[in-house]
């Protein structure tokens, strides 16, 4: 199927399952990169990814097209991921559990992925950053949004995005060197 974004949305609104599936398949990579980038690997990552699409599909009638579908989905993914981080923080505070243990239990990691130590090191380094730096690094370096787009998405001044991006990279560099 080679439909434009607008046509797919129109069909999905009318309840065509193939259009809904097309939306999911087109944007799965972007949502996965955002959610996994912010949360790291873990069993709840799949749920957050699903919830991102479910929330979007349920509010399809409200979608006015003033932002691209990918941007809209990324916003939902960020909000849900940051909420999950808050939930984890509360959980850790009360139970003393460590979420790092989930890193090894993500079900869909291939052997090749596990073997890639450098990538793994960077992923773990990212997880050590504060969420405010991590989110911006993921959006800029992994999802490729411009700093202006990120500022709009996170309701922050562009200067703040630039400074957090710089500080985040400097911190990540230190973490990776350690």
């Amino acid at each position: 199927m080679d439909l434009t974004e607008y046509e797919i949305i129109k069909r999905a609104r009318l309840g065509h399952e193939d259009a809904v599936k097309e939306i999911i398949e087109r944007h799965e990579q972007q949502v996965a990169a955002t959610v996994i980038g912010i949360l790291g690997f873990g069993p709840e990552v799949d749920d957050i990814g699903q919830e991102t699409f479910v929330q979007f599909l349920r509010s399809l009638n409200k979608f006015r097209g003033d932002a691209r579908v990918g941007t809209y989905l990324t916003r939902i993914a960020i909000n849900l991921s940051l909420n999950e981080l808050k939930r984890r923080k509360r959980y850790v505070r009360f139970s003393g559990a460590d979420f790092q243990e989930n890193i090894c239990s993500y079900p869909d990691r291939t052997e090749q992925e596990k073997a890639s130590d450098a990538k793994e090191m960077i992923r773990q380094g990212l997880q050590k950053l504060e969420p405010k730096f991590r989110t911006i690094i993921v959006l800029r370096l992994i999802n490729g949004y411009t700093t202006r787009e990120i500022a709009k998405m996170l309701h922050l001044p562009q200067g703040t995005v630039l400074s957090r991006l710089a500080r985040g990279q400097a911190k990540l560099k230190e973490i990776l060197k350690a």
């Binding site: 399952e17 809904v20 599936k21 999911i24 398949e25 799965e28 990579q29 972007q30 996965a32 990169a33 996994i36 980038g37 690997f41 990552v45 799949d46 990814g49 699903q50 699409f53 479910v54 599909l57 079900p107 869909d108 990691r109 992925e113 450098a118 990538k119 793994e120 960077i122 992923r123 990212l126 690094i137 993921v138 370096l141 992994i142 490729g144 990540l172």
Partner: peptide, 20 residues
Amino acid sequence: QAVAESASRSFPQGFAERIM
């Protein structure tokens, strides 16, 4: 460059079906 390449860009298989 390494951060961009480290990204994992997929959910476990059957993601679309699970959402449906």
